[in-house]
């Protein structure tokens, strides 16, 4: 069975290590905050200028001056810090954020990512995505393996305008966990009950399949 959005988020959260500073993009990545293992601490960075983002506020806590990068009302945890946008992107660009998790339209075998623009549709902008993919030490892309018409999102070459080049090394989809290296996708795990054949069929770019592909533990 293909993973649900929450199951993808659970698998993402299992990558976090105690003491990691993590930036989560909008969508499935944000859900990963709900599944951080109890025995570790991670600190969430929100690129509008908050390190130590907490949960959504209660009615009493709500504050117009306290929002996240998705412009949603939010809280700050004890020990958080708040700073300017320049400071925020200094820590991103400077490689101080341990983990970035973001969605994508396409990823290719060179580690290129397209996530912000579909030509001939209204372009709203890249926000902080280009800075994040250029700066983070570890980037995980979360997305469905194929679009709703069954077209693979894991390609030989991205077809859409890029967000960043040679920057993606790990992908977690609803079907599989893959690494990107040496001009190929490398299959490392498959979703429970999903066959290697189905993954191969839905991966357009070169795919390296090891002899044994374990099922994900979720």
């Amino acid at each position: 069975m293909a993973l649900t959005r929450d199951q993808i988020a659970m698998r993402v959260a299992s990558e976090f290590k105690d003491g990691d500073y993590v930036n989560l993009g909008i969508g499935i990545p944000t859900l990963a905050a709900n599944y951080v293992p109890d025995d570790i601490e991670v600190m969430l960075q929100s690129e509008n200028g908050l390190l130590g983002m907490g949960p959504y506020p209660t009615e009493e806590q709500i504050d117009a001056d306290m929002i996240n990068a998705g412009k949603e009302t939010v809280t700050a945890i004890k020990g958080s810090s708040i700073f300017s946008s320049a400071e925020s992107f200094a820590m991103i660009r400077g490689g101080h954020v341990d983990f970035t998790v973001l969605g994508a339209f396409e990823v290719d075998v060179h580690g290129n990512i397209a996530s912000w623009m579909i030509p001939n549709k209204l372009v709203k902008g890249m926000g902080g995505a280009m800075d994040l993919v250029a700066g983070a030490k570890n980037i995980i892309v979360t997305m469905t393996h194929a679009d709703k018409h069954g077209n693979s999102k894991l390609l030989s070459e991205c077809t859409l305008p890029l967000t960043g080049v040679n920057c993606i090394t790990r992908i977690i989809t609803d079907l599989a966990v893959l690494t990107v290296a040496d001009g190929a996708f490398h299959l490392t795990e498959r979703a429970p009950g999903v066959s290697v054949e189905e993954i191969a069929e839905k991966t357009a770019g070169k795919l390296v399949i090891p002899e044994h592909v374990p099922e994900m533990v979720i």
Binding site: E47, F89, M126, G127, A129, M130, D131, G135
Partner: peptide
């Protein structure tokens, strides 16, 4: 890009006419 925008303003105010960044390459 958001970080480039912030840095463009910061650089402008700090008398730095331009800067190199990997963002957007």
């Amino acid at each position: 890009p958001q970080g480039t925008l912030a840095e463009k303003m910061r650089a402008g105010g700090a008398g730095i006419p331009a800067f190199y960044t990997a963002t957007g390459y």
